[in-house]
Amino acid sequence: MSAPTPILEVRDAVKHFDGLRAVAGASFDVARGSITALIGPNGAGKTTMLDLLSGFARLDAGAIRLANRSIAGMAPHQIARLGLVRTFQLTRVLAGISVLDNMLLAAPRQPGEHIPSLLASPRLARQREARARLAAEELLETFGLRLKAADYAGSLSGGERKLLEIARALMTESSIVLLDEPMAGVSPRLGRSILDRIAILRQERGTTFLFVEHDMDAVMSRADKVVVMAQGRVIATGTPAEIRADSMVVEAYLGGLAGERVP
């Protein structure tokens, strides 16, 4: 018996930016229900990889398959509807609307978002809205933002914005969530608690997580699998223990640069 199909398959992905090869033939899989870390030194192509996976950058060559379906060339919203959601390295909360509206905006399958179906069945839209509100309040509770629900997202602190962006991503009920440096810019304690909550949600919902992170302690303790990128290529994949024992990784990345963080 072969292993079940991975939720995400990246094959020989290439992305150039004006002659710079940001991603130069990278291949890796993300297993369904796993917490996979994507690590590598600055400029390794990690964020470009997330952009490729979420449709914010277009693949020059290679293939990306999400749940057995090619997503190369799709727009971000199309990929999101197939069940892949991402967060951004610099948090992007919608500052001018409330925390609750940030969450409700992420609710899937809301017929009230389309004028024809809104007019055809206003009741269904209201029912979905009420259900989404419950789900949103539960997630806000999990992330400690319940009391801020009515506040404008622009009034949140940096750490709270990070939490809101992750909670909002989870609100989409996506099967895979990409997190770009979920611990950056927040205190180490909050960062660890974010990862704790992710581990719990993976247990409860079976959501797959792929996260880019520089904090090696966090990566090694929380990830099931680690993908190491350097100079646009995947140089190693394996369990945290295997990665730590890999001399090439240690040389390319962990060695002198261990514990490096982007300011």
Binding site: A75, P76, H77, A80, V85, F88, L105, E113, T172
Partner: peptide, 8 residues
């Protein structure tokens, strides 16, 4: 972009 990332 953030709104598109939510599937809109």
């Amino acid at each position: 972009d953030a709104t598109a990332a939510l599937g809109k």
